[in-house]
Nucleic acid binder design. Sequence first.
DNA 1: ATTAAAACTTAAGGTATCTTAAGAAATAAA
DNA 2: TTTATTTCTTAAGATACCTTAAGTTTTAAT
Lengths: 190, 190
Amino acid sequence: MKAQIKSYFNRYVDFNDEEIDAIYSKLEEKTFQKKEFLLKENMICRHNYFILKGIVRLFYIDSKGHEKITLFAIDNWWVTNMESFIKETPSTQYLQAVEDITVLSLSKTTLETLYIEHPKLERLFRIIAENMLIANLRKSDLFLQMKSKERYTFFVEHLSAFAQRVPQYMIASYLEITPEYLSELRRNRH
Amino acid sequence: MKAQIKSYFNRYVDFNDEEIDAIYSKLEEKTFQKKEFLLKENMICRHNYFILKGIVRLFYIDSKGHEKITLFAIDNWWVTNMESFIKETPSTQYLQAVEDITVLSLSKTTLETLYIEHPKLERLFRIIAENMLIANLRKSDLFLQMKSKERYTFFVEHLSAFAQRVPQYMIASYLEITPEYLSELRRNRH
DNA sequence: ATTAAAACTTAAGGTATCTTAAGAAATAAA
DNA sequence: TTTATTTCTTAAGATACCTTAAGTTTTAAT
């Protein structure tokens, strides 16, 4: 467990063993069962989760009562509702385990004190925020340029880690396609 | 000019006058005329621009030769092609002045040295990256939930600073609507 | 003031995608 | 194994939005 996060931390910034230990000791390991919620609508998201194992999804319920998935996250990703976590505002979204998962939980207050004790962490999370931003910009561009069928093909080819582990209706939701239409697209493809 | 950026910097992190002076001295004031390019496709984006005055747009040319605007930026915003700037990869987009503009230009190499000399700047740009991410997530959610007409109404009501200063076909492009259809939507609204 | 260029509008026909509703298949629970 | 639950498929009709093409209005250049 510690090896996993140590390797992750050192990918972006050089931390020595004492720093890793100090930071790691503030992280709380937790497990959630499939379908369990890490966050529900209207709650303020007080934690950022580092996924050690498993898949989670972030979604909201639209005006027609349908779930709309805005993000999937997998092993070695940080996941939270950014807006709620950063601005401490009520979440409009749910964060839910798609499989049984193990995470390291980092609270907002702990993070703030760690930033002061370990300025390097500020750099790490600056880089993480930049990477998240780039990933989100890429996703936006993808949706801007591609039709439904192309999005599905792209997802299957480039995000197969998810494609194999989440049900099709969740893929449809993430790709902004109705499950019925995705089913039709798949049929016409072979 | 210095007052403007000083006020901006201190909104997020407390800098003293010497720090502001040291950082400010590394920023280069530049002007661009309407329609002039700050960045073109295939170039690596080596600068981050703080807009003192004016509006810029970030856009790419799609497979049919149409301009697709992905971002507008205005006074007191940082603007760059994030992916190209951070990863030092060729830009797929153009950055262009919509009006005559004045900016403060910060080069990537300068920024890297400033991070080391002034660790507080790491915090500032961590916060800026988080804010950009939140803004982008909000934009994505907007497009996910709203139909064309609603997006237009939202834009006019919430982003009137832009709505009044950019031509309608650019608004259409940003909202992912054809100019013809936007024209139709406007007609049917009153 | 004239001309040229840029921006906006209108309308007809077409297409991608959604909605609704029902049934089939697969997976999990009893 | 049987039943219940979840997931996936099929099909018909509806609609939001696009494409093309032409004409109008506004703004900029000569």
